[in-house]
Simulated scan of single mutants.
Amino acid sequence: MEISLNEIIDYYAKADVSFVGAFGERVSPQLKVLDRHTNPAGGGLVIPFSGSACFTFDGKPYVIEPGMVVHAGPGMRLSKEVIGDREWEYAVIHYHIPQHERDEYPLFHKDFSLAHGRSAKVPHLVRQILDIQSIPGAAAKFQTKVLFLSLLQEIFTAACGQPGHEDSKLIEEAMGYIRLNYADELTVQKVADEFSTERRQFSYLFKRHTGMSPIHYLIECRISKAKELLGSPGCSVKQVAEWVGYTDSLYFSKAFKKYTGVSPSEYREGFAL
Rank of each mutant, 00 (worst) to 15 (best):
K169W: 07
V17K: 10
Q128Y: 13
A41H: 13
R208M: 10
E81H: 12
Q133I: 02
V82L: 09
G261K: 07
I3P: 06
S4Y: 10
V188K: 13
A15L: 09
G164E: 04
P40K: 13
G234M: 12
G73I: 14
G67Q: 06
R179Y: 13
Q143F: 12
F55R: 11
M76K: 08
P123T: 00
S4P: 06
E154V: 07
Y267E: 07
T197G: 04
E172Y: 05
G73R: 08
H109G: 01
H100T: 11
A139Q: 09
S119L: 01
Y246K: 04
I135D: 01
D35W: 05
Y11F: 15
S18P: 11
V82R: 10
M212C: 05
P98V: 02
L152P: 00
F156A: 02
S249H: 14
R26A: 10
E220T: 12
S265N: 11
S150R: 05
A241N: 01
V191T: 08
G75T: 03
F256K: 05
Q99E: 15
E87M: 13
G245F: 02
K110T: 05
Y246E: 08
Q30E: 06
G245P: 05
A140L: 00
H116L: 12
T144N: 06
S18I: 03
V69P: 04
F271M: 04
S224G: 15
L125A: 04
S263H: 08
V70H: 07
A115T: 11
L78N: 09
F148K: 07
R268L: 07
A241S: 13
R26C: 08
S253I: 03
F148L: 02
I129A: 09
E173V: 04
S113K: 13
M76W: 06
H216T: 15
D16C: 00
K238S: 12
P61H: 14
I155F: 11
S134Y: 14
I64A: 12
S236A: 04
V262Y: 12
R222I: 15
W243R: 15
Q189E: 15
I223N: 10
E172V: 08
F49A: 10
K227C: 06
P29G: 09
E194W: 06
T144S: 04
K141D: 07
E65Y: 04
S119A: 08
Y62A: 01
H165C: 09
W243E: 11
I83L: 14
F271E: 11
P98A: 00
K190N: 08
A241R: 02
E7N: 13
L147N: 10
E7S: 09
D193L: 00
V92R: 00
P214H: 07
T260C: 00
A272E: 15
D16P: 01
E269V: 15
F156Y: 08
F23G: 08
P136W: 11
V126W: 02
R268F: 01
G234P: 12
D35L: 00
L273Q: 05
I129M: 04
F19V: 10
G231Q: 02
D111R: 11
C221G: 03
V70M: 14
T144L: 03
C54N: 03
